[in-house]
Design a protein around this nucleic acid. Structure first.
Lengths: 330, 330
DNA sequence: CCGAATATGGCGACGATTAGAGAAGTAGCA
DNA sequence: TGCTACTTCTCTAATCGTCGCCATATTCGG
C-alpha cells in the first residue's frame, strides 16, 4: 500500500502534484504528468479513501436500511439501489433492521459516524422520525412507507390508492361479486391507501366491503386465508395484502381443493420476482421497484450537489394480469 | 457534529483524556470521567469513524460481493452475514457483481481503498484469484464456489458430493428407475461434485446416467425441462441443478399436464426459502446457509485478531423431503 | 526530601487535499 | 537591454478528527 508521498518521491515531484494529476484539479506539466503516471503504475498506487473522505467530509457511502433483505421486494430494491450507487461512484452499506427499532437506531447512528452521504430507509416504526432527527444525517429517503416528522426527509412511494382500485376492478371485471380484501397494516400508508382504493371501488359498484387484517408476510397470509374460508365461504375474489400473502393464500386454497381462478380469483401486490415463477403465475399490481430505487439514489445525489430535489414522489403502478384471475369478457 | 476537541474543552480536559474515557484505554480520575461523560452527553458527541479508521488502519468494514442479491440463495446468505457482522461490530458493504468480472475487479479494488478488513466473495470467474492477489486484501473467504490460486484465501462450502448422493438416493427410494440429472455448471465445484454424487449412486445401483446441462437459473431450468421431455420421455425422476431450476421445471411439467410427484419426481438443491412456500413444496437438499455465513465472518474476525483459521470448511447438507417426491415404502 | 507510581497534556502520525506562497518564465514597454 | 507585470506551474504547510507515545506534573510512602 503505497502512499501518495512515495509516488511523489518516485516521480520527483511533490504530493500535491500527484494529487492534481490524479484528480485533474489543475494543469500539470506534460512531462511531469507522465512521470507521475508511471510512478502510479509502478507502485500500483490507490488513494486511501478513508483519508480522502476524512478531508473532504464526504464518504461516498449511502446507507440502506431494510427490514429484511430476504424479502424479495427488498432484495429487488437493494439490487437496483446498488446498481445505481455503483454507476454514480457510491458505495452501499447494507443494514438489516429486522423491524427492530433499537437496531435501526444503532445503524442510523453508525451511518452518521461513517459520514454517510445519505440514507435510504425503509421502516415500520413510527418513531423513526425522531431517530433520524437526532442523528441529523444529510438526507433521508424513505421508500415505500411514511414516517412522521423528521428533518430533511424525502419520500418515494408508489400509488397505492390507484393500485388498490386496479386490483379490485380487476376482480370485478373477472366476474367476482363477493370480494374480500386482506387489509394490510393500517399504520402504513400503503396499507391504508390500498384499502381505501378497494373500498371506493366497492362502494361505486354497490358491493359489500369485507376485509380481514393481514400483515405483509407469508405466515400472515396463511392465517388470513384460513379465517377467510370460515367467515366468508361464498367468497369469489381475494385482494391479498401483497404477493407473499397471496402465495400462502393460494397454498391454503390448494390444500382444500379450491381451484384458482375457477373457484376463487386472487390478486397480489408488488409484482415481486417470484410471483411470475410460481404455478399458477400470480396476477398482481406491479410497483416500479427499479424506478423507485433509482429515484431514491438520485435524490441523495441531488442533495449532495446542492440541487433542489422533490420531497415527495409518487410512482405509477400497473396491473399485471396472469393466471390467478379471469380476463374480462366483453 | 462535535469533535473530540470540543468535548475536551467543555469538560476542561485534553482530547487524550476524552479518548481514554471513551475507549477505556487507561485510568482516568473519577471526577474528570464524570465531567467528560456529561460533556459527551451534552454535545451528543459521536467519534468520527473515518478518522478513527484512518489512524487505526482498520475500518471495521467487511465487503460482500455476490453475483445477484435478488437470487434467494444469496439474499439469505447476505442476511445472515449482515446479522453476524452487526453482532461483531462490523459493517457490511454490499456489492452486486452481476457476474461481471470487470465490476468485480472494480469492487475489490474499491474495498481495498476503503481498507476493508475482509472480503466475502462469491464468484463465477476463474480469474478472480488474480484480482484478489493484485489487490492484496486482508482475507478473502469464498463461499460456495472454488477459485484458483490467490493469496490469503479461505474456502467455505457445503458438501455438494454428499448432497448429490442424497438427492439421487431419495429419488431411488421413491421408486424411480429412470433418473435424469440437470448437471450444474462444470466450472464450479458445486456443479462437478453434485454430478459426481449422482453418477456414483447410479453406478452403485446399476442405473443409467443421464444428464442435461443446466445453469443455476430459472430460465435455464425451463430450457432443460423442455429438452428433457423430448430426449427422455420415459423419465421418472429429476435431480435439478438447484431450487430455481427445479421451480421452472415443475412449471413446464404442470403446463404439459404431468403430475408431480405421481408421474415424475423432482428434487432441487439449496433449500432456498421459497422452496417451502410454493405449491407443491419442493423436496430439496438443504445447504446450511446460516452456518456458512457465520463461519465466513468468523474467519475474517479470527484473521483480524491474528488467530489461526481454517482454510477449508465443508458444511453438512441435509435432505428435506417435501411434496415433490414419494416417501420410501418399507 | 527523594524515588516511585500514576494521571494528564502536548505533539506528531495516519494519508490525502487545497489554499496560498513562491519560483520561473514570458511579454510588453521604455 | 532592462525592468515591471503577469501568467503558469509547483511546493510548502495546514487541515480533517482520532489515538498513543512520551514527557511532565502531582501525589504518596518511606
Amino acid at each position: 500500500m503505497a502512499t501518495i508521498r512515495e509516488v511523489a518521491k518516485l516521480a520527483g515531484v511533490s504530493p500535491s502534484t500527484v494529487s492534481r494529476v490524479m484528480n485533474g484539479t489543475a494543469k500539470v506539466d506534460e512531462e511531469k504528468k507522465q512521470r507521475v503516471m508511471e510512478a502510479i503504475e509502478k507502485t500500483n498506487f490507490q488513494p486511501n479513501e478513508l483519508a480522502r473522505a476524512l478531508f473532504k467530509q464526504t464518504s461516498k457511502i449511502i446507507g440502506l436500511i431494510v427490514p429484511n433483505i430476504e424479502n424479495p421486494f427488498f432484495s429487488e430494491l437493494a439490487r437496483v439501489i446498488e446498481q445505481e450507487c455503483f454507476a454514480r461512484g457510491f458505495r452501499l452499506l447494507l443494514c438489516n433492521s429486522n423491524n427492530d427499532t433499537k437496531k435501526e437506531r444503532i445503524n442510523v447512528s453508525m451511518l452518521h459516524q461513517m459520514k454517510a452521504d445519505g440514507l435510504i430507509l425503509i421502516t415500520n416504526s413510527d418513531r423513526t422520525g425522531d431517530i433520524i432527527a437526532d442523528c441529523n444525517l444529510p438526507v433521508v429517503v424513505v421508500v415505500d412507507r411514511y414516517v412522521t416528522n423528521g428533518g430533511e426527509i424525502a419520500f418515494v412511494e408508489s400509488d397505492h390508492y390507484k393500485g388498490g382500485r386496479m386490483a379490485t376492478q380487476c376482480l370485478l371485471d373477472g366476474g367476482c361479486k363477493k370480494i374480500v380484501c386482506f387489509r394490510g397494516p393500517q399504520e402504513f400508508n400503503s396499507g391504508r391507501l390500498r384499502f381505501q382504493g378497494y373500498q371506493d371501488v366497492c362502494r361505486e359498484n354497490g358491493i359489500e366491503v369485507c376485509y380481514i387484517d393481514c400483515a405483509y408476510s407469508y405466515e400472515a397470509g396463511k392465517k388470513a386465508a384460513e379465517e377467510l374460508l370460515e367467515r366468508y365461504p361464498n367468497v369469489e375474489g381475494v385482494f391479498a395484502a401483497n404477493d407473499m400473502s397471496a402465495l400462502s393464500t393460494y397454498k391454503v386454497f390448494r390444500s382444500r381443493g379450491i381451484r384458482v381462478p375457477e373457484d376463487i380469483q386472487l390478486v397480489g401486490f408488488d409484482d415481486v420476482n417470484i410471483s411470475s415463477l410460481v404455478s399458477p403465475e400470480l396476477t398482481t399490481i406491479r410497483q416500479p421497484v427499479a424506478e423507485m430505487g433509482r429515484e431514491a439514489v438520485d435524490i441523495i445525489c441531488k442533495y449532495g450537489e446542492g440541487q433542489p430535489f422533490p420531497t415527495e414522489t409518487v410512482m405509477e403502478v400497473e396491473l399485471i394480469q396472469r393466471e390467478t384471475t379471469l380476463k374480462k369478457q366483453s
